[in-house]
Design a protein around this nucleic acid. Structure first.
Lengths: 154, 154
DNA sequence: AGTCATATTGCAACGGGTTGCAATTGAACT
DNA sequence: AGTTCAATTGCAACCCGTTGCAATATGACT
């Protein structure tokens, strides 16, 4: 659900932002220098980034970067399926770039380390909620807090 | 008020805040008017409340209420197990009063309605993560975003 | 009742993120 | 190349929550 057909093979697409540009145009949205800066930053990102980090990295490209512009662009990019976000245990936003294998997040309350939950590991929960309630889980937004094995032992 | 009549399960301990007071004292912590005000508010709360709502309700009792005091008290109450918190889809904190049956949360991305996930419905996921990674899930902090049956149809 | 250590409060500044609105600008059309 | 209109930006104010620190007040002990 996160990644629709038009984004197939998008490892390429991301590096080459003209794909994003076309997607935006197709929706009557615009291609601006600010958006390009953010996409450059995203293209050189892997794993998870907080919103604040993205703002800072954009500022490295253009010191005049305005936070609200970055966050609004992130919203747009999420709508067209280019990034997804979840919330870390402290409530801060975490973004990451698609396409990537869809996954949820696991975070330790004590050591703050985090891990990814692959689709198959969450499958039971997802299908159970689907079946019992007709609820479709957004796995990439899922963030589970708890205690990791290492911290539990100490 | 905090201490009136009908005590059913969850009500008992909370309605009588002397229990909380004792728990605090047992840890060398103190009983203050500000904490009492918050406990009065919590005692008359059921279901979920945001931090901001709690601040506002405390202000109704004492207009001089300071947000940081409320949030710090909430931290303490969470440590002693009297409240738990999770994050709504927008990242805002949601508190709720214990004891209550432990549960996770389900929230619809579209209509923002939300539901509780009882322990047994999450059991498979919890035990799977426990077994495969030794990770202990904090169910009450869990908040799952997705699309509810009603919204999916439209 | 008075003393004292320290938990707690008030305050002010900050951090992350959002919103409303006027000014700017992308891009479609001519 | 110029016109036009809506999408986007910049800005400033705001919201929720956190943090550091000096001042205050709890409650244990005398």
């Amino acid at each position: 659900m996160a990644v629709d057909g038009s984004l197939d093979g998008a490892g390429v697409a991301l590096a080459d932002w003209s794909t994003v540009r076309d997607l935006l145009h197709a929706r009557g949205l615009r291609w601006t220098p600010q958006r390009r800066a953010l996409l450059d930053v995203l293209a050189s990102t892997d794993g998870h980034v907080t919103g604040a980090e993205l703002v800072e990295r954009c500022r490295a490209i253009d010191p005049a970067t305005i936070p609200s512009t970055v966050y609004r662009t992130l919203d747009v990019l999420e709508e067209i399926g280019f990034v997804s976000h979840s919330h870390a245990a402290d409530g801060r936003e975490q973004f990451h770039v698609l396409p990537v294998v869809e996954h949820g997040h696991l975070e330790c309350r004590r050591c703050h380390d985090s891990w990814e939950i692959p689709v198959d590991e969450a499958a039971e929960l997802v299908t159970a909620l689907e079946r019992s309630r007709g609820f479709t889980v957004d796995l990439s937004h899922l963030s589970i807090l708890g205690l990791c094995a290492a911290c539990r032992e100490t």
